[in-house]
Amino acid sequence: MRIEADRELCAGLGMCEAMAPDFFEVGDDGVVVLLDETPGEEHRMDLTAATEACPMLALKVRD
């Protein structure tokens, strides 16, 4: 599993960070930073929920 972030779409609203702070952080520039791009499968449900919560659709979980 891999997390992808489109930094150009990101508005820095922090929904992902609020839902999965071990994997997402809004950086000093106001754009998402991926803390772990290849998390273990055991995190899929939480990461899918966090990426789907992004109002800008800037995040994706890929197999």
Rank of each mutant, 00 (worst) to 15 (best):
G27K: 08
A49G: 09
V61C: 09
A5L: 08
M19H: 07
R44L: 15
D46I: 15
D22S: 10
V33L: 14
D36N: 14
A11C: 05
A49M: 14
A20T: 12
V61M: 15
D22G: 14
R62L: 14
T48P: 00
G30N: 09
T48N: 13
F23K: 03
C10M: 06
L34M: 04
L35I: 11
G14I: 08
E25V: 10
A11P: 00
F24G: 00
A11D: 11
M15G: 05
G14T: 06
A18N: 05
L34A: 06
M15S: 05
D63R: 13
V32G: 06
I3R: 01
E52Y: 07
A11T: 14
G40I: 08
A49W: 05
E41S: 14
R62F: 02
A18R: 13
L47N: 01
G14M: 06
D29I: 06
L57K: 13
L57S: 13
A53T: 02
D36M: 08
L59G: 06
R44E: 14
P55H: 06
E25H: 10
L57P: 00
A11W: 01
E17A: 09
D6Q: 03
A5G: 02
D28K: 09
L47E: 01
A11H: 02
G40T: 05
P21H: 07
V33I: 15
L59R: 12
L34C: 07
D63K: 13
D6E: 04
D28T: 08
D29W: 06
T51E: 12
C10E: 03
A5E: 01
P55D: 09
V31C: 07
R62C: 10
G12T: 10
A53E: 05
R2S: 00
H43E: 15
E8D: 13
G14E: 05
L34W: 10
V32W: 14
G27M: 05
V31N: 07
A50P: 09
A20Y: 09
L57H: 13
